[in-house]
Design a protein around this nucleic acid. Structure first.
Length: 662
DNA sequence: GCAAGGTC
């Protein structure tokens, strides 16, 4: 028998060829620079001894598009895009890949699909089948199911070949059709319709996309929350006591009150009592959990917070490291390692490092612990982990930082939790209660290698005994103001997109990039606002001072951003925040004011669609029904947008041109 | 000139 195997990317094709052939494959070039054909012999349970050609595509080999009749922007009118014919085409740069599959298929009796085991992978698999059938219409088709490239796992996959799941293929086809029709229709409508207003609207492309708009909506939503925030003054009582050279800071049980007179009365009662009484002393073991195995989303959040990169930079650096073979595939939703993976073998590879090699060595000498299991598994890829050791000299500066993070995260996952002793002390002072919380770190464990985590609320407390009475060293009434929430950071935005099903791990950073390109939002260094020329919609300095008036209010809820783990990312290149431009605000406000059931600026339509795709996959509905229903929804929004277009234009005039907000 | 999704 002759068998053709096709993977989603060359790296998988090469790895599988290597495993199935025992490293005795031959390599041949194809017409595409990223794709190689690997040939070898293999004895399939299904087909017996066979000669195999293993090749790959490079992501999708087809794309959905409108026909020539609908390529013009001016005619026919954009609403026709909801009903016009659409068809799959092979883009020019993918033709050689499709041809390679067709010509190889000509000599083969069977085709085995090795694309990633996710929805998009299933769809890519179906277009590989179509390409192969052009060369050999009667070719038999099988599908391998695998989620990593451990040899034992691949051998199991090849011994239990299954079928392509055409329900998943249909779900992806539905997504493509919806995104294409709505994206083109609204983009043309907005761009052409708003152009007469002039200014930035005369030259810009005003694009709509089912992911772009909700992403913009999050930024605008937070902008208004910040802008409409009214700080409230509050008062509190803070007690501290120094003993044996150690100071214990006690927080008030009531935290804070918004009535000054009440706090004065309570405070004076404390002072009148003179002495405080220790009511409770509790010591108990505690631990700080090691991190979960690394997903793409978590990677991007950390990279934007701690490595001073944008999500997109971080992804492109990670892709380089992956292509050079240093780290595993960086696009994954999985935060648990497969039981069969040789994690200690991966730890061993890090021993040569002069920075964490010793730590890796200690792990192998008894300190190794299995990583925690998170709740996510995309069934297509393992968590991001180092594959082999990269000497610092072979990496550039950014690669070094990303690689170091991936390695330290992995080693931390294979370590023990940090352990400590927590102390809680409660005192009564007058009629008020206060407590102090302290932690002594006993075993640092993973903290030694995972330098991004600090157990920073760990403070040592002096010894107290129950019933002990003392006169506090200091008792202050403090004053503060509630603080406005901060504008969205990239980490916040990614978290919101994730929670609302906007985009995929591979595309979130691109959407964030896109709404900046379109000049819907701009990224501004925190603490550097009000300095954005005339592009921002922000009113003067909306940055309400962050509370903490006087010397008090340690627990004021205003804490901005990262919190304890934010280890030293201040300075010139600090965390960026997203603020909408006038144009961005105008678009979201305009759509909101048209009062649809489903505003395009909100994530609900996309979220609903995500649920419908799942329903297609579970055979609870069909692609045709979903496309029909959803296109109806969007077409309704479209026709209302046309009817009430003056509302949108008014919002644009108001925000983009008038003095609104300046 | 327009989308979102793959991958390099």
């Amino acid at each position: 028998m002759r068998i053709l195997c096709v993977a989603e990317k060359n790296s998988i094709s090469k790895a599988v060829a290597s495993i199935l052939s025992g490293d005795t494959y031959q390599t041949r070039n194809t017409g595409n620079q990223y794709v190689k054909n690997y040939t070898f012999d293999f004895n399939f349970q299904q087909w017996g001894p066979s000669s195999v050609t293993m090749t790959a595509v490079s992501g999708h080999i087809t794309t959905l598009d409108v026909t020539a009749a609908n390529k013009h922007w001016e005619h026919p009118p954009p609403e026709t895009l909801f009903t016009c014919p659409v068809r799959f085409v092979t883009p020019e740069d993918k033709q050689s890949i499709a041809d390679n599959i067709a010509s190889q298929a000509r000599y083969c009796q069977a085709l085995c699909i090795w694309t990633d085991c996710d929805r998009e992978g299933e769809f890519i698999g179906s277009s590989i089948v179509d390409a192969a059938k052009k060369g050999n219409p009667r070719i038999q088709v099988k599908r391998a199911h695998f989620s990593n490239i451990e040899p034992a796992h691949i051998m199991q996959a090849v011994s239990r070949l299954g079928e392509l799941d055409y329900k998943q293929v249909a779900a992806v086809a539905a997504r493509m059709e919806l995104d294409l029709r709505t994206g083109y229709a609204f983009t043309r409508f907005l761009t052409l319709g708003l152009r007469p207003l002039g200014g930035p609207l005369s030259g810009n492309t005003i694009s709509y996309g089912s992911c772009q708009f909700p992403t913009l909506g999050f930024v605008v939503d937070r902008y208004f929350k910040v802008k409409s925030f009214v700080p409230e003054p509050f008062w509190s009582i803070k007690v501290s006591h120094t003993k044996d050279g150690i100071t214990a800071n006690f927080s008030w049980f009531r935290n804070r009150l918004f009535d000054r007179a009440s706090v004065i009365i309570l405070y004076e009662r404390c002072l009148a009592a003179k002495r405080a009484t220790v009511k409770k002393v509790q010591e108990k073991p505690t631990k700080k959990w090691k991190p979960l195995p690394l997903t793409t989303i978590e990677f991007q959040k950390v990279a934007t917070r701690l490595l001073q990169m944008t999500g997109q930079q971080a992804m492109s650096v990670a892709e380089n490291l992956y292509n050079k073979g240093f780290i595993s595939y960086p696009r994954t939703e999985t935060d648990r390692f497969d039981k069969g993976m040789d994690l200690q073998g991966l730890v061993r590879k890090q021993i040569p490092s002069d920075r964490w090699g010793r730590y890796a060595n200690d792990l192998l000498n008894g300190a190794f612990q299995r990583p925690r299991d998170g709740r996510h598994d995309d069934k297509a890829h393992p968590p991001i982990h180092p594959v082999t050791f990269a000497a610092p000299t072979v990496l550039n500066d950014q690669e070094r930082r990303v690689y170091e993070f991936v390695v330290r995260r992995f080693l931390a996952c294979c370590s023990d939790d940090a352990k400590g002793m927590a102390t809680d002390i409660e005192i009564e002072y007058g009629e008020e209660r206060f407590n102090a919380h302290g932690i002594i770190v006993l075993e640092r464990n993973y903290l030694d290698v995972y330098i991004y985590d600090k157990w920073s609320d760990s403070a040592e407390l002096p010894k107290f005994t129950i019933g002990e009475r003392f006169e506090p060293t200091e008792a202050l009434m403090t004053e503060g103001k509630t603080a406005a929430p901060g504008y969205l950071t990239e980490a916040d935005l990614i978290a919101l997109m994730d929670a609302n099903g906007i985009g995929t791990d591979a595309t979130m950073a691109e959407h964030i990039q896109k709404i900046q390109e379109r000049e819907y939002v701009c990224a501004v260094s925190r603490g550097n606002r009000g300095n954005r020329g005339n592009r921002g919609a922000n009113e003067g300095d909306g940055d309400a001072p962050a509370g903490r008036g006087g010397r008090g209010g340690r627990r004021g809820r205003g804490g901005r951003g990262g919190g304890a783990a934010d280890g030293g990312s201040r300075g010139s290149n600090s965390v960026k925040e997203f603020i909408p431009t006038r144009l961005g605000v105008a678009l979201i406000q305009g759509f909101d004011r048209m009062e649809f059931d489903n505003s395009l600026g909100k994530p609900f339509l996309r979220k609903e669609f995500e649920a419908k795709m799942k329903a297609i996959c579970e055979a609870r509905t069909t692609k045709d029904a979903v496309v029909r229903e959803t296109l109806r929804q969007y077409a309704d929004v479209f026709s209302i947008s046309q009817e009430r277009f003056s509302v949108l234009k008014t919002a644009c005039r108001e925000y983009v041109f008038d003095q609104h907000g300046v």
